[in-house]
Design a protein around this nucleic acid. Structure first.
Lengths: 220, 220
DNA sequence: CTTGTAACCACACAAATGTGTGGTATAGAG
DNA sequence: CTCTATACCACACATTTGTGTGGTTACAAG
């Protein structure tokens, strides 16, 4: 059979494998063979070997099935390790809550609007996501943004918190001054059109800490 | 040997598989077995079957090796059925590029710093992530934020674009005025301390559109 | 007690898959 | 022309892997 120009097929193979890896479905040698139209497995393998040699692709250590990886570092999972105690972030699915009102957060879990994928380096504490309403934290946080929240009942001065205000979850920055009986806590908005809230420290309900912000730009 | 409380092991299996799928490395039945400490393959399979039955996991149609998938629809091709409802689709891994300089973006793929999980309906090849540098788009976009970019060479008026400026990728808002030979294109920063850039329309290189913004709040 | 079910183990087998060996043809350099 | 490297094919074989069949133990309900 004829042969394609030098290096051209090589590039096509790399593109195909990269695409599959990014899609989360590492291809097999025979899948590469079929995608490229090769009539022999060895041909596909030869190209893959060459790509690995030049460092454009990587294989898992034990070189198992579907063992191709991207050369960037943390792409590979624990591989064959028994109990991989790696330090990199782990992706997790956390619920995106529609409305959070008064009552235990467990109740709000019935109201799951969707799930979002979060990679956090923190231990699997309780995480949830909220869709932001209102512009009280503009311009830092806008309406329709999604915030990832780590559940915890206490917060420090200056932290972004999700707190219950008027039976509804709100995002504010916590300011704490004084101590003991003289403790004064304020929930401040970034937007100057909103006045600070100074709740009774004993009655203040903090749902958690904002650890991440996500905003989608929809075309416009 | 004794047995663990009802449903508990099930949850652990699901968590393990989800993690692996999000990492782009679908696990084998025997990998699940080892991770859970089962002494039999069948035990792992039984749990996986149960999870598929309850719809918490999916298998590829042909049920091949490493065929577990997340329940979100299309497995990798357009074969998935449109389960009406959410706008989000299957999570994918997108490369986070360290620095993007002049030259074809393919070259920048060598410089993959990490990977980011993104749920979008766009093909993954057309997506990449960038870590923001500088404060030219403050307060909307800050330094160290991560933006998800969809590759495309053209953009409309008012869109957030990633363009090549001085051999480096920059984020700006595109302003287009006039038409034909009188066409004038400006790249504007949000931060007033940065003057608008008015490149030659023919020489303007647009890498893509910013479709999402992510910001992590590190404790403070 | 009997029945049912969830959790688990042991073993087997066909298909999928990575790898190895050897061969052919074309292009380009000398 | 010879020589070499690239691109490709054909076939074989050991592992890996999904799946099937059957058995064991504990817990709860009737």
């Amino acid at each position: 059979m004829g042969r394609t120009p030098t290096g051209q097929t090589r590039t096509r193979v790399l593109a195909f494998v990269q695409e599959r890896l990014l899609a989360g479905t590492p291809p097999t040698v025979r899948e590469v063979q079929q995608a490229m139209g090769f009539r022999s497995v060895g041909t596909a393998r030869q190209h893959l070997d060459a790509l690995v040699d030049t460092g454009q692709l990587t294989r898992t250590d034990d070189s198992q099935h579907r063992g191709l990886r991207l050369p960037g570092r943390s792409t590979g999972g624990p591989g064959g390790r028994p109990t991989g105690g790696r330090g990199s972030s782990r992706p997790r699915l956390v619920p995106l809550l529609g409305r959070v009102q008064a009552g235990p957060l467990t109740t709000a879990l019935q109201d799951i609007e969707d799930h979002v994928v979060v990679t956090t380096r923190h231990p699997p504490t309780e995480l949830f996501a909220l869709r932001v309403r209102g512009d009280s934290m503009a311009p830092e946080i806008l309406a329709d943004d999604v915030v990832i929240v780590r559940r915890q009942p206490k917060a420090e001065h200056g932290q972004l918190v999700v707190a219950m205000v008027d039976d509804e979850a709100t995002i504010k920055r916590l300011h704490r001054r004084g101590s003991g009986a003289d403790l004064r806590i304020e929930l401040r908005a970034t937007n100057p059109r909103y006045a600070p809230i100074a709740p009774d420290p004993a009655a203040l309900v903090i749902l958690g800490l904002v650890i991440e912000l996500r905003r989608e730009f929809t075309g416009a």
